[in-house]
Structure formats: structure tokens, C-alpha cells
Simulated assay, not measured.
Amino acid sequence: MNQTTIINKLNDLKYDGFKSAYLRQIEDTNYSKLSFDERVYNLLEAQEIFLQNKRISVNLRLSKIKDKQASLEDIDYSSKRKIDKSIIKDLSNMNFIRNHHNVIISGCTGTGKSYISQALGNRAVIDGFRVYYIRVPTLLEEIKISRATGTYTNLLKKYSRFQLLILDDFGTSTISTDDATNLFEIIEDRTEINSTIITSQLPVSSWYDYLNNDTVADAILDRIIHSSHRIELEGESMRKLRSKINKI
């Protein structure tokens, strides 16, 4: 049996990682020093890594996270932002998802709420969790459409299956009584089952008045606040700071 036959079979099986490692073994004479078992293990490991990377790539695309490059390692911890590095470190191990806890990130516009939420989302995807990102105004519009088309139950099922749901821009637009109720149902369906990250320009103390529905506000706050990790950002808008730097 020749090498071409083996390569053709690997192509047929779509064992791309295995094939790349096999070609490396052919070209690199150092591999001849390894035992048969070591060379086979190297090939299998290469295929496993290839499948893991492919799965991460697909799940990142399906997550709808806008900033695929957002990284916890690149968070700016300058003193004016007053970010508690220990909180980020604690969240980075993803135990908050395993324990079905939530995260609330608040701060003025441009302070980096969305970036941190997406950095956490990217890390969660890499660690094998199902993640989905959506702005709250977009979610509320989706719910309205689903109710009108009779697909609301399917929409609830869709959002309940994500182990981490990132709800960005809570409180940036007015919310009706129906909107508040719809948001509650999404959150209720995930409570103690999956985790949610909420970013908001509004401090948590203002959420009750913003929701403008005492019953729903009580229910949402009860389900989110008591099992949440809090990140409160301060300082000047990061977008303004970057703009100033670019002008220098």
C-alpha cells in the first residue's frame, strides 16, 4: 500500500487533522525515531485537536458574538476603571456557568461592558459551552414577532438551551409592560438551569423603576440579582480614549 492510497482514504473520511499530521510525519525524519505506538498516538491527537478547533469555530459563529477577538487577557485594568481583577479571574474559570450563576456588568456608555461580556462569552465557547449573544432591544423585537407568528414556544426553547446567554444593552431604550413580561419569561425559563450575563448603563438600583411593573420587576430582580456576580465599571468612555490616542 502506498502513501497516495492512505491520503485518499483520509480525504474520503475527512480526517483532515490526521492527514496533516501524517504528511508531517512523512516529511520530518525525526518522527522515524518514535515507536509505532507514539506515531499513531500523534496522528490521533492531531485529529482530536482539529475537531476541537473546528467545533470552537462553528460554535463561535453560532454564538453571534460580534467581537470574536475580545479576550479576558486584553482587559484594561487601569485604575480609573476600578475593575476588580479578582472577580474577572474568578469568572474566567467558567464555574459561574457550571453553578448556574449570572453576571451583571454595569457602567456608563463606552466603558467596556460589551467587551467584557463578549470576552467571557468567547472564553466560554472555547471551554465547550453553548453561548448566544443578543442585544435586549433585538430580543424583545424577536419575541413580538414570534408571538405574532405563533412561534413563541419555539423561541423560548431556543433561548433555554444556551448554557450562557449574553443580554447586551439592557435599559438603553424604553420598555413597555409587555416587554418587561416577555423579558421575565426568558429569564424565568433559564433560572437555576443556565447562566445569563446582562450589561446595562443603568445601575441595578434603577432597574426596578425602569421596568415599570412592580410584579415583574420583583420577579426579575429576585431571579437575577441574588445569584449574580457584579462588575461595575467607572472611568471615561474607552471609545473616547481610543479616539484621543488616534489623534495624537
Rank of each mutant, 00 (worst) to 15 (best):
Y115R: 01
R130L: 08
N102A: 08
Y132K: 06
I134Q: 03
Y133K: 13
L140A: 03
G112Q: 00
R130S: 15
H101M: 06
I126A: 10
Y133S: 06
D127R: 05
R123H: 12
I134S: 05
A124F: 12
G128I: 04
H101N: 14
I143Q: 00
Y132F: 15
H101L: 11
F129M: 13
G107C: 07
S106F: 03
R123A: 15
I105Q: 01
I143P: 02
Y115P: 01
G107H: 11
T138P: 07
K144Y: 00
G121L: 11
T109W: 03
T109I: 11
E142G: 05
K144E: 06
L139I: 06
R98P: 03
D127A: 04
G121H: 11
Y133A: 06
G107E: 01
L120V: 06
C108P: 09
T138R: 15
D127I: 04
L120Y: 10
G121I: 01
R135P: 04
V125Y: 07
L120A: 09
G107I: 00
R130H: 13
R130Q: 05
Y115K: 10
V131G: 03
D127Y: 12
I105F: 09
C108E: 15
I105K: 10
N122I: 14
L140G: 10
I116D: 02
H100R: 15
T138L: 13
I126L: 02
E142C: 07
G112T: 03
E142A: 09
I145M: 09
Q118L: 12
A119I: 02
S117C: 08
I145E: 08
C108R: 15
V125C: 14
T111L: 11
N122F: 11
V131E: 01
I116T: 04
Y115H: 09
I104P: 05
Q118A: 13
I116N: 07
G110T: 06
Y133C: 01
R123V: 00
N99H: 08
S106T: 13
C108Q: 13
L140V: 01
G110S: 02
S114T: 15
Y115L: 08
T109S: 09
L140W: 07
V136A: 00
R130C: 01
I145K: 13
G121E: 00
H100T: 13
T111I: 10
E142V: 07
R135I: 00
Y132D: 02
R130K: 14
I116Q: 13
T138F: 07
R123W: 04
R98H: 12
L140Y: 05
I134K: 08
K144Q: 10
Y132N: 06
N99C: 05
S114H: 11
P137F: 01
H100Q: 12
N99K: 15
I134G: 00
F129T: 07
E142D: 11
R135E: 08
N102W: 14
R123Q: 15
G110F: 09
I143C: 04
I116R: 09
S106I: 14
C108K: 15
V136T: 00
N102F: 15
H101C: 06
L140Q: 12
V131K: 11
Q118S: 02
F129S: 05
L139F: 06
L140I: 04
R123C: 08
N122K: 13
I143E: 02
C108W: 14
F129L: 14
A119E: 00
Q118Y: 10
V136K: 04
I134V: 06
